[in-house]
Design a protein around this nucleic acid. Structure first.
Lengths: 161, 161
DNA sequence: CTTGTGTAGTTGCATTATAAAACCAGATAC
DNA sequence: GTATCTGGTTTTATAATGCAACTACACAAG
């Protein structure tokens, strides 16, 4: 790629998400953060990625307001990476990815963990999408509507999400 | 990257999903497919990606059973790319990505479309995660449990998703 | 106060992925 | 039969990734 096409200015919210967290490592870093990792070294060890890449990814996540830097909670002079609300908001995306694997992976027996609810310890249900009046929706029950007040300078693409 | 680390054999289902559809274009191709694109040229025009990349992506998606090739429905001698059930199963992931943008994007006014339910034309609700006994769950209400019968050859990482 | 160890990076180099543009073969249209 | 469309492949350039080696600072022990 002469320049890895950026979707930052695309009018599709999916493309925008991908621009922010659509690379190989960002989602996994957020996953680790959701499960307690805070320090550079923790991310590096648990994910096994190169340190220079981790540096770049962490900085990008901080820039985007997904992580924030804070003084270390253990009294040392170092810093910690903490999730912001925007970062915690990624949780449903991770659940959706997890459930897709669980349902469609060719070798589901290799999946090591199950997402359970803390109180009862039982597997969670599938993510559900409802209409405002409470009907359960599938993809076929939905459509895309252009926003009434689009300010985008780019022409609307027919119906592409 | 000497070799883009593959998560194909990771025991984390999120990593496995990313391995399958975690690159820049795959999810957008699936998005287009969900909204009706079928032909090579349609994908190429609506997404504006280079044809060589599209070729590689489409082939990978077919290999993974997300798309399948079928004779063109318009009688021509060409082929079409159709979603399989596994491909349609990506829908919740796209919704989760979309809703994350809608909620946290810095410039939500640039988002051009709204996902509505077809019947009433009203915006859908946020994706919801429930426990088996019907309680609405947030990230903090969940935990990861190792599967009882893990066959994975790789050691379990403490609690990393 | 000097040496050692851990943390959090940075730098340099090799390799791979991506992009743009040119090219091409078979099908279709004229 | 010639032009054009469809669905690619090839070529070339550049950006991203990965590994390994190196650096700077903090802290702890001796």
């Amino acid at each position: 790629m002469v320049k890895r096409t950026s979707f930052e200015n695309d009018d599709c919210p999916i493309a925008r998400s991908l621009d922010a967290i659509g690379d190989w490592w960002s989602l996994l870093i957020i996953r680790e953060a959701l499960f307690g990792s805070r320090r550079f070294g923790e991310f590096q060890k648990s994910l096994g990625l190169a340190k220079n890449i981790l540096t770049v990814r962490l900085r990008a996540l901080v820039d985007q307001g997904i992580l924030k830097l804070a003084p270390a909670s253990d009294g040392s002079a170092y810093q910690e990476y903490l999730l912001t609300p925007k970062g915690r908001g990624v949780f449903p995306i991770l659940v959706a990815l997890r459930q897709w694997s669980e349902e469609f992976d060719d070798r589901p027996e290799e999946i090591a963990t199950i997402l359970v609810d803390k109180e009862k310890g039982r597997p969670v249900r599938k993510l559900e999408l409802y209409s405002q009046d409470g009907r359960l929706l599938s993809a076929a029950d939905t459509a895309l509507k252009p926003r009434a007040d689009v300010k985008s300078s780019r022409k609307l693409r027919s119906i592409s999400a």
